[in-house]
Amino acid sequence: MPRLLFEKTGNAVWISHLDLMRLFQRAFQRAKLPLKHSQGFNPRPYVAVALPLSVGVESVCELLDFDLDGASVPDDEIRDSLNRVLVDGVRVLDVYEDGQKIKNLALLDCVLTLEYDRGVPEGTAEAVEALFARPSLPVMKKSKNGPVEQDIIPMIRQLRVDQNDGHTVTLEARVCCQNPSLNPMQLAAAVDKYLPEFRPDFVKSRRVALYDAQGNIFR
């Protein structure tokens, strides 16, 4: 089954996961690339996004599996035809066959930007670095059965803290994204909880790369 790698940036970050699936279904239709439909009482065009992205989060490494009905179309042509009819912010970067099995997807790289409107307080980067060096870091997480506490440390593989300018601190992290998975915004939640004096005014999140369990780029 073919797969496409796409980015979701700018205005498009506000499109929810379900709306994004509909958006792609329509884009395929507009591009005259008929999708295979599911069987059954209420046939639906088949598209599947690997890791649903939270609303408001940017990404340059989204994966979408699809299956075309009818004659095969060259991968580059699929990419270009889709890009002609997609919305600003959603852009197909690559189309390829024989993507890896989604179950082997294990890690992702993310960048959190902590914004401080009145300037970054003295010692923020050091304090954040020290926080994630702790042996355990329980943070509340929403689950189906209400909030549960989750230790995020075992799910963080790498982490780097930088102060780029007077107003922002970035957190670059490689975290688990499947079985178990860590929502990168939980890193910001940990800062909020344990370092209230360094609580940022706003946090932006961006997903930058996907890996398998061995740390090889996942395609």
């Binding site: 205005n11 506000w14 929810s16 609303v55 408001g56």
Partner: peptide, 24 residues
Amino acid sequence: MTELLKRILPTVQKPARYTGGEFN
């Protein structure tokens, strides 16, 4: 879009209805 609106959007229901940018 203003930075202010970008900060408000994550706090409201269905933010995509305020951003424009649709096809056509």
